[in-house]
Amino acid sequence: DYYEVLGLQRYASPEDIKKAYHKVALKWHPDKNPENKEEAERKFKEVAEAYEVLSNDEKRDIYD
Results as ranks from 00 to 15, higher is better:
residue 14 P to A: 14
residue 50 A to S: 03
residue 41 E to D: 15
residue 17 I to Y: 03
residue 46 E to S: 08
residue 52 E to N: 12
residue 41 E to P: 02
residue 15 E to A: 08
residue 38 E to C: 13
residue 22 H to T: 10
residue 39 E to W: 09
residue 6 L to R: 02
residue 56 N to S: 12
residue 58 E to M: 10
residue 45 K to G: 08
residue 48 A to R: 14
residue 50 A to R: 00
residue 8 L to V: 15
residue 12 A to E: 03
residue 44 F to W: 15
residue 52 E to L: 07
residue 38 E to W: 06
residue 63 Y to I: 06
residue 38 E to Y: 01
residue 13 S to E: 08
residue 63 Y to M: 06
residue 7 G to W: 00
residue 45 K to E: 13
residue 46 E to G: 07
residue 22 H to C: 12
residue 54 L to M: 02
residue 19 K to P: 03
residue 56 N to D: 11
residue 7 G to Q: 12
residue 50 A to E: 01
residue 3 Y to S: 06
residue 59 K to R: 14
residue 48 A to H: 14
residue 55 S to Q: 08
residue 56 N to I: 05
residue 24 V to E: 14
residue 27 K to C: 09
residue 23 K to E: 15
residue 23 K to P: 01
residue 13 S to R: 11
residue 11 Y to W: 11
residue 45 K to C: 10
residue 28 W to F: 10
residue 7 G to D: 03
residue 27 K to N: 05
residue 13 S to W: 00
residue 50 A to K: 03
residue 13 S to C: 05
residue 47 V to H: 00
residue 23 K to I: 07
residue 48 A to F: 09
residue 30 P to N: 05
residue 13 S to F: 02
residue 36 N to I: 08
residue 9 Q to D: 08
residue 15 E to G: 08
residue 48 A to Y: 10
residue 3 Y to N: 04
residue 11 Y to I: 07
residue 8 L to C: 14
residue 52 E to G: 12
residue 28 W to D: 07
residue 21 Y to K: 02
residue 3 Y to E: 05
residue 56 N to T: 09
residue 27 K to W: 02
residue 20 A to W: 00
residue 50 A to Q: 01
residue 39 E to G: 05
residue 57 D to L: 14
residue 9 Q to H: 09
residue 28 W to Y: 14
residue 52 E to W: 10
residue 44 F to P: 01
residue 48 A to S: 15
residue 24 V to C: 10
residue 42 R to L: 14
residue 16 D to A: 10
residue 7 G to K: 06
residue 41 E to N: 04
residue 52 E to K: 13
residue 45 K to P: 02
residue 60 R to F: 03
residue 27 K to V: 08
residue 4 E to F: 03
residue 57 D to M: 11
residue 28 W to C: 13
residue 30 P to E: 06
residue 17 I to G: 02
residue 26 L to G: 12
residue 36 N to K: 15
residue 33 N to Y: 06
residue 32 K to N: 09
residue 14 P to Y: 13
residue 26 L to R: 14
residue 5 V to I: 12
residue 29 H to V: 06
residue 37 K to M: 08
residue 58 E to G: 12
residue 51 Y to I: 01
residue 63 Y to G: 09
residue 27 K to M: 06
residue 56 N to V: 07
residue 61 D to L: 13
residue 36 N to W: 02
residue 23 K to G: 08
residue 10 R to C: 08
residue 27 K to E: 11
residue 31 D to N: 11
residue 56 N to P: 00
residue 61 D to C: 09
residue 41 E to G: 11
residue 60 R to S: 04
residue 38 E to G: 10
residue 55 S to I: 15
residue 22 H to M: 12
residue 36 N to P: 03
residue 9 Q to S: 12
residue 4 E to K: 10
residue 58 E to V: 08
residue 5 V to Y: 01
residue 19 K to Y: 07
residue 11 Y to A: 13
residue 64 D to A: 04
residue 55 S to H: 07
residue 13 S to D: 09
residue 16 D to E: 11
residue 55 S to K: 09
residue 57 D to Q: 11
residue 54 L to D: 01
residue 20 A to H: 04
residue 37 K to C: 08
residue 42 R to V: 15
residue 34 P to M: 12
residue 23 K to C: 11
residue 26 L to K: 15
residue 21 Y to R: 02
residue 6 L to S: 02
residue 53 V to Q: 11
residue 36 N to V: 06
residue 32 K to A: 10
residue 59 K to C: 06
residue 58 E to Y: 11
residue 15 E to W: 02
residue 40 A to F: 04
residue 37 K to W: 03
residue 45 K to L: 11
residue 62 I to G: 15
residue 62 I to A: 15
residue 2 Y to C: 01
residue 47 V to C: 15
residue 55 S to D: 01
residue 4 E to V: 05
residue 55 S to G: 15
residue 5 V to F: 02
residue 58 E to D: 12
residue 33 N to E: 05
residue 13 S to A: 12
residue 35 E to H: 09
residue 63 Y to Q: 06
residue 12 A to R: 01
residue 53 V to I: 10
residue 41 E to K: 12
residue 58 E to S: 11
residue 32 K to S: 10
residue 4 E to Q: 15
residue 36 N to S: 12
residue 39 E to C: 05
residue 5 V to C: 14
residue 21 Y to W: 13
residue 55 S to A: 12
residue 57 D to S: 11
residue 42 R to A: 11
residue 29 H to G: 07
residue 31 D to L: 06
residue 26 L to E: 11
residue 53 V to F: 13
residue 11 Y to T: 15
residue 16 D to I: 01
residue 5 V to L: 11
residue 17 I to E: 01
residue 34 P to H: 15
residue 11 Y to Q: 14
residue 27 K to A: 07
residue 37 K to Q: 04
residue 15 E to D: 15
residue 32 K to F: 07
residue 14 P to G: 12
residue 13 S to T: 15
residue 2 Y to A: 13
residue 63 Y to K: 14
residue 51 Y to P: 02
residue 57 D to Y: 08
residue 44 F to V: 07
residue 12 A to I: 00
residue 10 R to S: 13
residue 53 V to G: 01
residue 50 A to G: 00
residue 62 I to N: 14
residue 2 Y to Q: 00
residue 20 A to Y: 01
residue 38 E to N: 08
residue 33 N to V: 06
residue 27 K to P: 01
residue 54 L to F: 00
residue 6 L to H: 02
residue 26 L to M: 13
residue 19 K to M: 13
residue 39 E to Y: 15
residue 9 Q to V: 06
residue 6 L to W: 00
residue 14 P to S: 15
residue 51 Y to L: 02
residue 32 K to E: 11
residue 39 E to L: 12
residue 1 D to P: 04
residue 49 E to Y: 02
residue 13 S to H: 05
residue 21 Y to Q: 02
residue 31 D to M: 05
residue 13 S to V: 03
residue 35 E to D: 14
residue 13 S to L: 05
residue 9 Q to I: 00
residue 54 L to N: 00
residue 2 Y to V: 00
residue 51 Y to E: 01
residue 57 D to K: 13
residue 60 R to K: 14
residue 49 E to D: 15
residue 26 L to F: 05
residue 46 E to N: 03
residue 43 K to M: 10
residue 3 Y to T: 02
residue 10 R to D: 06
residue 49 E to G: 06
residue 9 Q to F: 03
residue 3 Y to K: 04
residue 30 P to K: 05
residue 64 D to P: 04
residue 22 H to E: 15
residue 31 D to F: 01
residue 15 E to M: 07
residue 40 A to M: 03
residue 44 F to E: 05
residue 21 Y to H: 08
residue 41 E to R: 13
residue 46 E to A: 12
residue 34 P to K: 15
residue 6 L to G: 01
residue 58 E to I: 10
residue 43 K to A: 09
residue 30 P to M: 05
residue 5 V to T: 13
residue 24 V to R: 09
residue 17 I to Q: 04
residue 33 N to P: 05
residue 20 A to E: 03
residue 63 Y to N: 06
residue 1 D to I: 01
residue 10 R to K: 15
residue 62 I to P: 11
residue 35 E to I: 08
residue 42 R to G: 08
residue 59 K to S: 13
residue 10 R to N: 08
residue 44 F to H: 05
residue 15 E to H: 01
residue 32 K to Q: 09
residue 24 V to Q: 11
residue 34 P to R: 10
residue 51 Y to V: 01
residue 55 S to N: 07
residue 13 S to G: 11
residue 14 P to I: 13
residue 22 H to V: 14
residue 54 L to T: 01
residue 29 H to W: 04
residue 6 L to A: 02
residue 39 E to A: 09
residue 53 V to N: 08
residue 33 N to M: 07
residue 3 Y to W: 02
residue 5 V to Q: 03
